[in-house]
């Protein structure tokens, strides 16, 4: 396995991790499978496109000639994606969580409502922006740098770096802040948390916003290599979902490990001659089904038992 492959695997893993951890976090904290995560991804992509096209020329003229221009551009785009993603998370919260979170059959009904939101959003995007794929303003061009003797494309480096930073911030926020404490309490025991005065509604709102922001960040980072299109969210949603499953729904470390596994698997499958890029999905599915047959609740799916 050569070094470029490792970088490629890490790159894929980073984006998958952003999606999968969002899905996993939502499931464990409020018990909702967010099928509109792909829609958040697509909306954030288009939001970034619109904002980027409006703002970036100004940024360019303002910081013309600066060495850090690339980083500033990336920061602006990331902020746009994160903001739009968080806003869309808020919309999902208002539509799919608030009205039914205390009603019967919430898990299935929440899944259906978010699925409908996904459907409606993709069609709205299609209607508004047309089916044409559009490229996000590129940040880095196609240069390479060499890290520890490994050639890394700029966008790959930025994706891996930005994901590490974002995930670190999110996990630290979960670990050390007051709100994070409340969220973790709700994950462990929703009823106990409610009894000690933690409002499910107030806690669900930041979780929704944060997971939406993660999807937004993933959209911006992935859009450096892939175009923005209305249906762009479907693949990340499916991948994120199966990774969340593989890691065990509800386990953040499990999702991270699973993302790493799947990313690597995808990169490796791509270069094996008789499998190739087209068999990636099949190999991934086979792997996941195998793991789930051995461990029906995923790699570290212990929490699911308590939620049940």
């Amino acid at each position: 396995m050569d070094a470029a492959l490792i970088v490629y695997a890490l790159n894929l893993s980073a984006i998958y991790a952003l999606m999968a951890i969002g899905i996993s976090l939502l499931w464990s904290s409020i018990g909702m499978l967010n099928m509109a995560h792909g829609a958040t991804f697509a909306v954030a992509g288009y939001g970034t496109l619109v904002i980027g096209n409006a703002v970036l020329p100004g940024i360019d003229s303002l910081f013309h000639g600066w060495a850090a221009l690339g980083v500033i551009r990336l920061a602006v785009l990331l902020a746009a994606g994160v903001g739009v993603g968080a806003l869309f998370g808020l919309v999902i919260y208002l539509l799919a969580f608030l009205p039914i979170h205390d009603k019967a059959n919430f898990a299935v009904r929440g899944m259906i409502v978010t699925l409908a939101i996904n459907l409606a959003t993709v069609q709205t995007l299609l209607w508004w922006f047309g089916p044409r794929q559009q490229a996000l303003p590129s940040v880095f061009g196609f240069g390479r740098l060499t890290l520890l003797g490994i050639p890394v494309r700029y966008d790959q480096a930025a994706t891996i770096g930005a994901t590490a930073v974002l995930l670190g911030v999110a996990l630290a926020w979960l670990r050390y802040s007051r709100k994070g404490l409340e969220i973790r309490a709700m994950m462990q025991n929703p009823e106990g948390a409610a009894l000690s005065g933690i409002s499910v509604r107030r806690t669900a709102l930041p979780v929704m916003a944060v997971t939406g922001a993660m999807a937004g960040a993933a959209a911006v980072l992935l859009s450096q290599t892939v175009y923005v299109s209305p249906g762009a969210g479907a693949m990340p949603l499916i991948k994120g979902m199966i990774i969340a499953l593989l890691g065990g729904l509800g386990s953040v470390p499990g999702a991270a490990v699973a993302a790493l596994l799947i990313g690597t698997l995808e990169a490796v499958t791509g270069v094996i001659p008789f499998l190739g890029q087209r068999m990636v999905l099949l190999v991934q599915f086979g792997f996941i089904i195998l793991v789930l047959i051995v461990r029906p609740r995923g790699i570290s799916g212990l929490l699911d038992e308590t939620r049940k």
Partner: peptide, 11 residues
């Protein structure tokens, strides 16, 4: 719009 309508009915 029809798909959006269907999604709205679904929701």
């Amino acid at each position: 719009l029809r798909i959006i309508l269907i999604a709205a009915v679904m929701i």
